[in-house]
Nucleic acid binder design. Structure first.
Lengths: 181, 181, 181, 181
DNA sequence: AATGAATGAGTGTTCATTCAT
DNA sequence: AATGAATGAACACTCATTCAT
């Protein structure tokens, strides 16, 4: 999976052959197919790994005993750091969704929706409580923020000027300022 | 090109065969290759078309004789509308960049950088004049906004609740609020 | 024809496309097909040109009023010089015969046989007269010599140490020595 | 390889499709490409096979404990027999060299040069010892002889009047006579 | 558990030739 | 006389997957 993740991220799912994966991993095709039913399965596992990770972290922040502003801010910043820390997974996630088989795509979409909704509920809660500006539909706020998270895999370079934490702080600041009443 | 655009957007560049394109377009392979040097060339043309369109529109707004807040707001909203109006192109743009040949990719990146810089200069100008919050590096502000534009091709549905203009107003509002001093 | 000759010699007949020929010649496909019925025709013309040239020269030497040794020697040396002077044609000749259409191949073979026979008759005449060693069948002597002529297109370089005349003298010497009684 | 050899010899390398090879061999394309990296590879293997065979035989004769005249004569005759015995390989060799990829061509040329040099050294040795005529540069002598060997694939027919051994004796005689002091 | 030879349908691309203009 | 768009069959090669061992 590590080999597949690196290769999928580098050249894209369709441009990576099973032969290249097994060579990079130092195993044989037979062995790969013994553990994964298909190439598509490999991709699905990568999706699952990232989705579980992000969901767990979001749940942790959302359930915390803090004001909603603090909870949203932490969650918004954390997803940035986690995405940068798993940039290969993230790049695959946003680029290769349509290359999953329809049924697996459906499943991934469902998990992603759960994630989106949890995040949206934080926004909606803040709007209800009057601590956030209610002019924008909360779904749109979430898409606004996650667009920028998604976009990280396009422009972020580990050797750039800003650390993951700094980027996370800036992006969380932008979100929180956009939500000021 | 219309047939190719639709198919690339639907199933992705690598999943679309030249055979499918020519069948959808009602021409023969020979005819296609008479006008386009390669499949990659087709993709490049689609990129060029969208890039020119967006650049022209941005230039129009940036050069206008208005306060910088108004110019940035109009540009930020317009790119949303234009993206939604060309959602197939946009989906291809964000998904298939890495499937372009390296030299064409370089060229596209250069044009995209020009676009980014023009937009960034508006942000920087507002920050210099003190009408925008200067806490966030202007490049990051641009990536924040364009992340959400990029993301549109993932979630926006023409039959959804919000019209392109409404989405554009909301997203531009979010940006302007995030930039309030 | 000059463009085609150069290209056929450089990359071989099958590796040269009609498109490349017309581009090199600065004409269009339509124009080429106006004057030549097919690509194969072009090749045939090149064959014809060289065959006529060599046959004319051989006839000139064979008909001369000299002892047979002198006539053979001159003919043997001259074909070397003429081949080197038309090395592109010669390379095409020996390499691409099998790429001619069957009927054109037949025709070329017939002309070549005439050429071979004329040369062979000189050898046979010398053997009858007792000035040449008669141990070797004259056809074989001709193939021996023409093998080396054929081979020139493989190894001869215009910038090499030996001039065409020097090579010709050496090869004619070898032949004449091999024919000493 | 047997199927490929026959087909390449019959219709030429470029005129033989991989499809035809696999059909003649009774295997599938996939199977062929499992063992050979490319069509070019197949050709290269055929070259290698003939080159190794000829080099081994030449080395055997050149290293023998005999006067140089005898060693050269045997080598010169043997290459004729071996060439006739492998006439398909030989025809491919002389006709299709330029269809090999540049780097493989380079390699083949290098091996061929080794072969040429070994042969040439026998000629030079005889010239030094005074048993051969020294008027002709030894490289040219070798090209003279190998031209005729090369040429065999053009004219020799197994059902002709002369057996391989007879042809070999005649051609070796011609060479030895040409080299008499 | 693991191998790797084999499959067969599919890929993007090329090309000599034609023909309406 | 000349154009160049169009054809359509062919090309070398790839690849996810299977399966006997």
């Amino acid at each position: 999976m590590a080999a597949a993740t690196r290769l999928f991220s580098e050249r894209g799912y369709d441009r990576t052959s099973v032969q290249e994966i097994v060579e990079a991993a130092g195993v044989t095709k037979g062995a790969l197919y013994h553990y994964f039913g298909s190439k598509d399965d490999l991709l699905h596992e990568i999706y699952g790994r990232l989705l579980r990770l992000q969901q767990d972290r979001l749940d942790g922040y959302a359930d915390a005993d803090e004001p909603v502003e603090a909870r949203l801010r932490r969650a918004a910043a954390d997803v940035v750091v986690t995405t940068i820390d798993n940039l290969d997974d993230a790049r695959i996630f946003f680029r290769s969704m349509h290359q999953l088989s329809p049924e697996k795509q459906k499943q991934v979409r469902a998990e992603r929706r759960r994630y989106h909704e949890r995040f949206r509920d934080l926004v909606a809660e803040g709007q209800r409580r009057g601590v956030f500006n209610a002019a924008t539909p909360p779904d749109l706020v979430v898409d606004y923020h996650f667009g920028s998270v998604h976009h990280l895999s396009t422009w972020y370079r580990p050797d750039g000027r800003l650390s993951p934490q700094e980027v996370a702080e800036h992006l969380a600041d932008l979100l929180m300022r956009a939500l000021r009443p």
